[in-house]
Structures are given as C-alpha cells and as structure tokens.
Design a protein around this nucleic acid. Sequence first.
DNA 1: ACCCAGGCGGGCG
DNA 2: CGCCCGCATGGG
Length: 290
Amino acid sequence: MREIKVERFDIRHTVESAQPLAFFGDMKKDGKGVTYSYKDSLIEAEQKSNVLKYSSYGSVCCSELKREIETRFRLCDDMSGVYKKIGTDQFMKEAIKKYYGMRITKNDPWETTLCFLISQFNNVKRIRGIVKRLVVAYGEERAFSTGNVELKFNSFPTPEELAKRSAKDLMVHGAGFRAKYIESVAHACSESFDLQKLYKKKYCDAKEELMELDGVGDKVADCILLFGYGKTEAFPIDTWVKRVMEKVYFKGRNKKIKDICSFATERWGQNAGYAQQYIFWQGRSLGIGK
DNA sequence: ACCCAGGCGGGCG
DNA sequence: CGCCCGCATGGG
C-alpha cells in the first residue's frame, strides 16, 4: 500500500460523478475507495483525508502505478486556479462548495469511447449495467490470490475482442440500438482508426476525426476528448447541461447547442471541461428542468 | 401505464 | 444547412 498526499481532492465525488470510472469501476461501500481495472492489473485506491492510498494486483510496476494514479485522478491539476477561474458566479460557487475536490478523470481513449457510445439516449444506471456486462462477457478473466482471498476480475474488453462479435451478439447485453455503433467503432479501432494519434492533435482537429466514427456526434466526441484525452477545453452538452445553462446563464430561454458552446468557451476557456462537470453533477442533484 | 435517460443518423424541406 | 423523427431498454 503506497500513499500520496492530495489536496482539493475528493475520491467519492470524482468516482461517482458519471465519468468512465463510474461505469467500469467499483466504489467501495463506504464511499471512500474505488477498485478498477487498468490494463492487465486491478487497482485499488482509497482516500483518508489528505492521503490517497493505493495498491495493485498484477504486472504493473510501482513507478507506472504511481504515474497511473496521478494521471487518472489528475492530481497535478491546480484546483485552486481552476476554482478561481470557474467560480465566478453564485451557481458555480455553490456547485464547487458542494462537490469540492471533484476532479475530471483521465481515462483510456478506447475505454472512454466505448463508455460514451453507450451513454447516448441512456441513463447512468443502465450505462453502467451495459458496460459491466460487456466487461464480463468479453474482457479477459484474471485472478490473484492475496493471502487467503481469491481475487477475480476482468480486464476491459479490447476493440479486437469486440470486433469479433456482431451487433446482434452485443444486443444480448442490453446495448440496444447502440450495438451497431459498438460493432462499427470496434472494427474501425482495431483496423484503420488510430486513437493514439489524436493525443497530439489540437482539440478541433481531434474532434473532427472522432466524429467520423459511427455513433460519435458532437456530445460524445467532447466526452471522449475530455475524459479520454484530457482536453479540458471540451464542453460536452447533454440534456442536463443544456437545461442548467439555459436556466442559469440565458434567463431560461431555449438556446441552440452551438450558442451554449461558444458561451462556455468564451467564459471558461481551458477550464470549460471542469465547469461542465460541476454544472452537470449539480444540475442532476438539483433536478433542474424537471 | 407513461416518461425519460450524459444523442445520433438519416431523411426531408 | 436546419429541423424532426425513430430508436432499444428498463427504472421511476
């Protein structure tokens, strides 16, 4: 068990706020820790006030593990600076106070892509269920014995593994009409489409390329860029964010996605992604628009 | 029963 | 282009 000091970090808000970790990871019952698969390994992380304890089962070495933890939870982000930039109005101040320490997570691009393909026209509980069933069905099973306890988990299914299945196979797991997108994108990513190359592209260019994938539109592309590539200028606008934005910043008037997007970019710039996460999670908790 | 969910693609004007 | 509709599924 290793430790790292953390400030302005809350593992519960971070893991529970409908980011990819909420879909394929497991929150511990007490809400203070999480377990999730990383490559061939299983990682555990647990927070005790200002200390994040972590450990792993599997082949990942300790320097890589440290880097993975710091990257995944974006521990190097200057949250004080972020809060200063986005906490400029009453709504944001309250959201920040309520979910203080909630970070954007940085996840694997493919894993993020699959999660958000499934997210469309869907709800958080079902997304998690579908992702979980795909992991069980098509992830590689791994087991470790830790003292007297046998630990089993599945790694996240690769594009190659999913590409072997037809949309009809995938339907069994409840993916619904999204199954055809999963099939198509799994094929693309295991053959011609190179997700890795998007790291070095600018936000706009990367987004344009992502949207060539079947089932990836404006919103899903922004989610992939934010949670899968760490491009924090992305501002995904779903039904919740749209409603909050209209109510809080546009006097309740119906606005187009494009207008909301340019407002957010102008107001929050590189921190738009963070602003979005607080808006989204606070909007849901307040039930805005319902 | 009815409505909605971290939208998208296709078809039409 | 912009607008509108259908779409699988299950929980509230």
